[in-house]
Computed example of a mutant assay.
Amino acid sequence: MKVEIYSDVVCPWCYIGKRRFEKALAAFPGAADVEVVYRPFQLNPAASTAGEPSAEVYERKFGRPAQSIFAPLTEAAAAEGITFRMDDAVATNTFTAHRLIHFAARHGQDRQSAVKEGLLAHYFTDGGHLGDHAALTGIAVAAGLDRAEVTAFLDSQDGVAEVRAELAEAAELGIGSVPTFVFDGHYAVQGAQSPELLLEVMTKIAAGTAAEPADA
């Protein structure tokens, strides 16, 4: 079974959804045969690469105090064992971070998942800047990638065309919200659904009893 997860690294529900999916996968008897691939999606492709406090971005977008938005998100994250410090987060354009995730996939799904986790933690927990090449390199190295290779990659145009193509493909597929989980290129589940629901979907697909995609 192949699971493609469309998400952004500055999306709080994508981090929560990642953890819930991992719980579902751990409980799935056929987990060893599941291929997990993280696909790019940008909530704000026009975001500046300079970075600005995420609180300002949320207040500008929703027209209310950021804390009224952050509080329930922080609570939901804590229930999944994740620490959110969204007041410290630096909002920035995520294209380069997605390039790094793409690069990590060349070294296997475990490396890709580790880089994805590192990027999410850097933003939501550490208040880091996801456009900082030094920080991105450190995250990749911590995930087991070679420092020199990562540095050369980030300093090049490698992966730019590929990530742009994947972003365009997501748009063509009609993916407009994240996280979106696509199972075997056929069944789509949107949102940070519960581990129980995700496990049920995988179990039914494996057994050949899944509902048609419109009902998934």
Score class of each variant (00 low, 15 high):
residue 56 E to K: 13
residue 20 R to P: 01
residue 61 K to V: 01
residue 164 R to L: 14
residue 97 A to Q: 13
residue 155 D to W: 14
residue 64 R to T: 09
residue 16 I to L: 06
residue 88 D to C: 07
residue 88 D to K: 15
residue 202 M to N: 07
residue 98 H to M: 07
residue 180 T to M: 08
residue 3 V to W: 04
residue 128 G to Y: 02
residue 109 Q to L: 07
residue 13 W to L: 07
residue 164 R to W: 15
residue 176 G to R: 15
residue 215 D to H: 14
residue 11 C to Y: 02
residue 158 D to A: 13
residue 8 D to S: 07
residue 85 R to L: 05
residue 92 T to P: 07
residue 64 R to M: 14
residue 129 H to F: 01
residue 73 L to M: 05
residue 150 V to T: 00
residue 203 T to P: 12
residue 117 E to Y: 11
residue 214 A to P: 11
residue 21 F to G: 09
residue 206 A to C: 08
residue 162 E to M: 05
residue 54 S to R: 12
residue 33 D to T: 07
residue 19 R to G: 04
residue 212 E to R: 15
residue 67 Q to N: 11
residue 41 F to W: 02
residue 207 A to P: 06
residue 123 Y to P: 06
residue 150 V to N: 01
residue 97 A to V: 09
residue 117 E to M: 09
residue 65 P to L: 06
residue 27 A to T: 09
residue 203 T to I: 08
residue 167 L to N: 01
residue 185 G to E: 09
residue 213 P to T: 03
residue 127 G to W: 02
residue 9 V to I: 12
residue 59 E to Y: 04
residue 133 H to M: 08
residue 87 D to E: 15
residue 84 F to N: 05
residue 73 L to F: 03
residue 211 A to Y: 04
residue 48 S to Y: 01
residue 77 A to T: 04
residue 189 V to Q: 10
residue 37 V to D: 10
residue 211 A to C: 03
residue 142 A to W: 10
